[in-house]
């Protein structure tokens, strides 16, 4: 297994399930190559743990190309580790030095309870989308795609917001565990497009209500979310959500 010459001390959060409390355990991993991804280092460690008869560390991961949003490690005090615009799975060991100690924790928020070790339950995000993060168009109702020209600038902005992968790094980075960046990205995407107009007011109100019900904290504009977002979603979206919400609350007739 050993292909490289990096030795790393890992301190990893171990927690059996939702009900128990957890603690940091220390592991030494040796012979790590700097071309390995951060998760591949965990693969190596887990293989070793199995061979030693210890339970491997549970962590969420799937596509390993930075798009599915499943990986979620809080590495040395930063969600997805030290690089900007990069998910945990795209973080490589060349970002660390031989001899480093790396502390790995799960996302921490009352709305993201720990399932096991580094795995958390992010179904609160699904419920927020289910509360209004869509355009109500049944299949088959659509008009021709080109019948609705959309200024390129609006389409680009909507795309930039829609690039959110729903990983929850924003919540994990925020000192208030606020989900405003996530919610604002979806509200912005749909508010910027003409298709999103009919439900625009309703959507903002419902999604904010669900966000609050899930127990996320409120936004104090520290900007940590955008600084840590692997898709670099802009804070402008949060301002837009504030606008949308206030406009909807004060301007609607219901």
């Amino acid at each position: 297994m050993s292909e490289g010459n990096m030795n790393i001390t890992l301190k990893v959060w171990r927690q059996k399930n939702k009900k128990t409390s957890g603690k940091l355990e220390t592991y030494q991993v040796e012979g790590i190559s700097e071309d390995m991804s951060f998760l591949e280092m965990f693969d190596v460690l887990n293989e070793r743990l199995v061979s030693e008869g210890t339970e491997p560390i549970a962590f969420d991961h799937d596509c390993r190309e930075g798009i599915c949003g499943m990986c979620s490690m809080y590495i040395n005090g930063q969600p997805h580790g030290p690089l900007q615009g990069v998910t945990t799975c795209q973080l490589h060991m060349r970002s660390f030095k031989n001899g480093d100690t790396i502390v790995v924790e799960p996302w921490r928020s009352v709305a993201f309870p720990v399932v096991k070790d580094l795995v958390v339950d992010r179904s609160s995000f699904d419920r927020i989308i289910a509360s209004g993060g869509y355009i109500s168009v049944n299949t088959g109702n659509a008009q021709d795609g080109n019948s609705l020209p959309i200024p390129k600038d609006d389409a680009d902005k909507a795309f930039a917001a829609a690039a959110c992968i729903g990983c929850g790094a924003c919540v994990s980075a925020c000192k208030n565990a606020s989900a405003m960046l996530f919610v604002s990205a979806k509200v912005s995407q749909l508010a910027l497009l003409p298709q999103g107009q009919p439900e625009r007011q309703d959507r903002a109100m419902k999604m904010v209500a669900q966000m609050d019900a899930e127990g996320f904290g409120s936004c104090t504009n520290t900007g940590a979310c955008a600084a840590e977002c692997p898709k670099e979603i802009s804070l402008e979206n949060i301002a837009r959500l504030n606008r949308e919400y206030l406009g909807a609350s004060l301007g609607s007739t219901n």
Partner: peptide
Amino acid sequence: ARPVAYAVVRNQS
């Protein structure tokens, strides 16, 4: 909203 605190925090704000 965050009942369990992080052991290490490196702030970007």
